[in-house]
Amino acid sequence: MKILVCVKQVPQKDAPLKLNESGTWIREDVSYEVNEPDAFALEEALRQKEKHGGEVVAITAGPARAQQVLREALAKGADRAIHLEDPGFVGLDAFNTARAFAAAIKDEKFDLIFTGLQSDDYGFAQTGVILADLMGWPHATIIMQIEKSDGGIKVKRELEAGYFQFVEMPLPAVLTIQSGINKLRYATLIGIKQAKNKPLRKVTLAEVQSAIGANLQKIERMYIPQKTKKTEYLEGSPGEIAKKLVDKLRNEIRVL
């Protein structure tokens, strides 16, 4: 199986974030890491390859710094990588990102495309789904398990309240992968060395420009939530405190 895995570089989960000057996104000077569900998607792709053979290709869209996530994917065992490299890719909405990916892989023939369920920064959970539509392929989301079947795959989806759904689908297909479905491997030191010699294709913004349009979705404003709640200490004798509390519960919060 030939599997493409979409990997995004996102701000580190516990990094302290600062807003940019226009208050529309965060500042660039923050530590980055691989989007968590994408790491599981890559791991799943590598496991599928180990079972069934084939090829794993990692793709990302982002500035030069985003190459780090591809290096990591190559070090863990991906065979090659594609980097849509431009700072402009950071601001694309999910529709445009999917269109850019589709344009970048138009000459390739994949059996499967994996994305993470969603990104830890924007949290759209849309890129994979839209990509499937652009490719004209079926898709399934929140994937917990993948098995090859005759002529296609059988996947397990996670639904609400502990329910699972099993879906059979033909190939090619797009799957968005849930975090925690496997145990992540570490990049080995040898792997990191070998990654240097693996092919990494760069795609410029100009090459895919004709495929993308104006963003349909735009971040208007980002801000740190204002503290609106305040702790109030009721004082007095226990009797007085109880009286005040009942009064508040009845007249202010209206739960009594």
């Binding site: 530590s31 070090a75 990049a187 240097k196």
Partner: peptide
């Protein structure tokens, strides 16, 4: 949380950081 006061990390190559981060996570 890691310690880096003067953007020491920018003196390292991608591979060096990857090696460090891998060892750190392990």
């Amino acid at each position: 949380r890691g310690v880096d006061f003067i953007e020491f990390d920018t003196l390292l190559t991608d591979d060096e950081r990857l090696v460090r981060d891998t060892a750190r996570r392990f």
